[in-house]
Design a protein around this nucleic acid. Structure first.
Lengths: 321, 321
DNA sequence: CACGCTGATTGACAAAAGTCAATTCATCGC
DNA sequence: GCGATGAATTGACTTTTGTCAATCAGCGTG
């Protein structure tokens, strides 16, 4: 490479400025040039890679992953827990973190909307009591009578209790036996009101459901195993507020979904802050679908899940440059 | 590691500012904090090594003199500091440059071996935090209990800290009172292992010591003044990793050297990249000896020293045309 | 050798970053 | 509860940096 005096002075400026921490005017003085030139040289030095500014990869590797997640998927904030490390009890880490995150997100006089499920119940359980005022907690979708401790209305009520908030339950089943009945029920004023109120929320807390033999919808009897198999061949990938979505994050066009009393997807997406929480590694596909559907803006999950998602993203649509 | 919200926001601010190039007020807006806080966080991030800013050392190896050094003495790369020129504080320039050069040379998963001394300590001090992984830093020779801040183990540990590396100390004194004891100690498994590990390093950082009244070995009490005088008449010229060498770069055959716990010269020379750093002009003779012994492959020193070395070389063995 | 062209350099101004005293917030002991 | 204490945060101000139109220096050309 040819020797160019221009390079030399750029190097010197960069060295004095970045390594020695001199100010631009000091550098200018030392090199007998104007400060404007120094500014110009420094920009050139940065562009030419003579100075390298990078954010650490090993310190806070989890943080870095989180930032990458935010960038890649256009999310507001991502929180990750390191499961490999010496976490006291990895299982409880996510709900605890999620509960804290959620509490930080709730503001006075907010209207928050929560879905239900084991994860949400765990979060409610881990949530400390907060001194909020004027908060209303509403259910995101219809109820499912189930034998579990995490009955839908209990999730809502427990969270409301912790937030010193008013809890509003959904007085309807999640799934009805016919489409007609569902349609009729949705037009009932009390139900209509609840459904319409979802889009007016400030904050949502929910998770995405998987579709295996031991996942929620099956266990609660809302869906049969054979029915599930059929739906899967149709592209069923995950469950958002009771409703089945495909891999690209859209509502699966099926009878089951039409028999549902639940939040409209556009209403959900109208909520400014939507916190998604995923604990289980097996929920990779569903979560991917939820990302595609732009269902959430904030995410709490494990770093291994984050790594998987990023890897998958890189493979499926390699970034230019 | 525990979840600390403070870390998260600092990291996020650093990420948005340095990686995304947002302005401080944009970052502040995005994170809902004041711009003053952003400025504070960014400073903390820099101090904590979350962001690394490094400048190329190319400038210092781009000179004709440096090239000549490389050619004449068969060195890989030579970096020279002009003591008269742009040095903000000439004394600090060499350690700063050496630290930067060293950082550029260290690669992930490297095993690096460092000697100790004031120069090495200064380098450690000037070194910024680096984003390396899997690096191990080992001591090159035994320790000398000294009253100074630059205690051997501190050099190693400080460098390890800056590199996010594991530091391995040598659990032995540098000099023992008898040859027998030294020999016995060298056969101790834990010591043997450390000694053997030196040849397996990828990179070494060290300097050559002088032999005057106020040089290291004397000050630390490892060697008496009268003892020194005797050794000098025997040809003692410099100190490499504690061991005394003659002008032709070979180990001086003396009792002192035989009482030493330190790296074998062949082991040192087995390390592919060996960075020698010399600040003091008085180290001309020792450095010459170190060159003769082919102890190093990379060199950081002053250009006046380089000039002297080249001149001396030309006189002692004039090159044809 | 005057001319115009190109790219480097600068002065002056605008924008951004740094700083610090004042304030708010949280935590603790009484 | 309640005031004291110390840390975190911020608003207002200062300093530093970025920008850009204007100027200048070098240089090939008619």
């Amino acid at each position: 490479m040819a020797y160019r005096p221009a390079d030399q002075i750029i190097h010197k400026a960069a060295w004095l400025y970045y390594t020695h921490g001199l100010r631009q005017d000091e550098v200018a003085q030392r090199l007998n040039i104007s400060r404007a030139s120094v500014a110009l040289y420094l920009r050139k030095a940065r562009e030419a890679g003579i100075v390298n500014i990078s954010t650490s990869t090993h310190l806070f590797s989890g943080e870095r992953l989180a930032r990458q997640m935010e960038d890649t998927f256009g999310l507001e904030t991502v929180w990750l827990v390191e499961e490999d490390a010496l976490s006291p009890s990895p299982a409880s880490e996510i709900p605890t973190l999620a509960a804290n995150v959620f509490l930080e997100m709730v503001e006075n006089d907010n209207r928050v909307c929560v879905a239900w499920g084991r994860t949400v119940y765990d979060i409610a359980d881990a949530m400390s009591y907060a001194d909020r005022e004027g908060v209303t907690v509403v259910e995101m979708c219809g109820n499912l009578g189930s034998p579990y401790a995490y009955r839908p209305d209990q999730c809502t009520m427990e969270i409301a209790r912790r937030l010193n908030a008013k809890g509003l339950n959904f007085y309807a089943p999640l799934v009805l036996s016919t489409q007609e009945l569902a349609r009729a029920l949705r037009e009932e004023p009390v139900i209509r009101e609840q459904l319409d109120g979802i889009g007016a929320c400030d904050l949502a807390l929910f998770t995405v459901g998987a579709l295996d033999a031991d996942s929620h919808v099956i266990k609660c009897g809302a869906l049969g195993l054979d029915e599930l198999k059929t739906l899967k061949t149709m592209g069923a990938t995950g469950v958002i507020a009771g409703q089945i979505i495909t891999a690209d994050g859209t509502l699966l066009d099926c009878d089951y979904n039409r028999r549902m009393i639940s939040a409209d997807f556009d209403a959900i997406r109208a909520i400014p802050k939507r916190l998604m929480v995923v604990q289980e590694d097996e929920k990779f596909e569903p979560l991917n679908a939820a990302i595609a559907g732009r269902f959430f803006t904030h995410l709490v999950t494990t770093s291994s899940m984050a790594a998987k998602l990023l890897k998958h993203h890189a493979v499926s649509e390699p970034t230019p440059a």
